[in-house]
């Protein structure tokens, strides 16, 4: 087939590798900037099947970097998973594209992975709650996953192979909390593509059964930095996700970040899973720069963005006033509070 001729000419893939790619199933969690670019690259490469999970819809502010989407998608507020699948099928009709418009919570991810056993999970989410769930599901069902994230002009990527490499929880003793997000620190498209270049290269290697890069890769596309770290020493014997006495903490209900509508108050309360130290410097300086007033006392701080009032308590609890919609509250929460 002429379609994949250039990819087959590349010796590490070859005709056999191309056949192998055709038989693989990728699960993509998130269809934002990373998700759209990952999906397009893998669909063009001729992956067998791609399942795309996303809870969000296309907005105008996405078009600057979320390469699959058009103005029409934004005008119609199409769910990203749906808009992506329409464009992806037009790009390559050989590929089975399965969109799932839903929140990627522990139950859903475990259901998909347990039932369909994808060959690799690609992380294109915007928060660590979901990444920790992916990390646990990956270990439980022995499916590799590829971490990717970026903010500003900085990005990083890392492949987790169960029983071989340290898992994400081995590398992170705590969930980064209140760290910079794309909605507070901004993001430029080049770093998205650099992260995706790493993720898709590793995904293709997994598809053709080649050796993956076991190093943690990080880079800054604006300041011209690039670095790889060998992290194998960080594998922990007592890791609750990948150690012998594992408990898969992210899959336990009591460890989920919980969103609850407070009846009659047009308010959603969020109780975060992790009570780690919170660092709000980026958020506070973002709010100050935009001229948004922050009110603060010893117990909480609050601010209003686009008619939604956020109240952040020192114990980590957050109230978002002005909505009864848990999905909307989730979006706002991860947008501003990371």
């Amino acid at each position: 087939m002429d379609r994949y001729s250039r990819q087959q000419l590349f010796a590490p893939i070859g005709e056999r590798g191309q056949q192998s790619i055709r038989e693989k199933h990728v699960l993509l969690i998130g269809a934002g900037a990373l998700g759209a670019a990952n999906a397009e690259t893998l669909v063009r490469a001729g992956i067998g099947k791609i399942t795309i999970v996303d809870r969000d819809y296309v907005e105008w502010s996405n078009l600057q970097r979320q390469q699959l989407y058009t103005e029409e998608d934004a005008a119609k507020r199409l769910p990203k998973a749906i808009a992506a699948s329409v464009h992806l099928r037009a790009i390559n009709s050989d590929v089975v594209v399965e969109p799932i418009v839903a929140d990627a919570d522990a139950r859903l991810i475990e259901h998909i992975v347990g039932r369909h056993r994808p060959d690799v999970i690609i992380d294109s989410t915007d928060n660590f709650d979901v990444r920790m769930i992916i990390n646990d599901v990956s270990q439980k069902y022995d499916v590799p996953w590829i971490y990717g994230a970026c903010v500003g002009s900085y990005g990083l990527s890392y492949v987790v192979i169960p029983n071989e490499t340290p898992c994400l929880r081995c590398l992170l003793e705590d969930v980064p909390f209140g760290v910079a997000t794309c909605d507070t620190a901004g993001i430029i498209s080049p770093v998205v593509h650099m992260v995706v270049a790493h993720q898709t290269a590793e995904a293709l290697k997994i598809c053709v059964h080649a050796q993956v890069n076991r190093k943690l890769v990080s880079f800054d596309t604006w300041h011209g930095q690039y670095h790889m770290i060998d992290v194998h020493k960080l594998k922990k014997d007592d890791c609750p996700s990948c150690g012998p006495k594992r408990t898969y903490p992210a899959l336990q209900y009591e460890n989920e970040t919980k969103f609850a509508v407070l009846c009659g108050r047009e308010t959603v309360q969020i109780r975060p899973a992790h009570r780690g130290e919170r660092e709000w410097t980026t958020l506070l300086s973002f709010l100050t720069k935009r001229g948004i007033q922050v009110e603060q006392n010893d117990y909480l701080f609050s601010f209003t963005v686009n008619s939604h009032r956020f109240v952040v308590f020192s114990d980590g609890r957050v109230l978002i006033h002005g909505t009864n919609d848990v999905q909307e509250a989730k979006r706002l929460y991860y947008q501003y509070l990371g």
Binding site: G30, G32, A33, L34, G35, D123, S124, T125, D126, N127, F128, R131, G148, A149, C150, V151, Y154, G155, L156, L171, L172, P176, V179, A180, T181, C182, A185, I187, V192, V195, L216, S218, H227, I229, G338
Partner: peptide, 10 residues
């Protein structure tokens, strides 16, 4: 010295 910090965006 190399310092790698994790971020969550995407």
């Amino acid at each position: 010295i190399e310092i790698v910090h994790f971020v969550g965006g995407g």
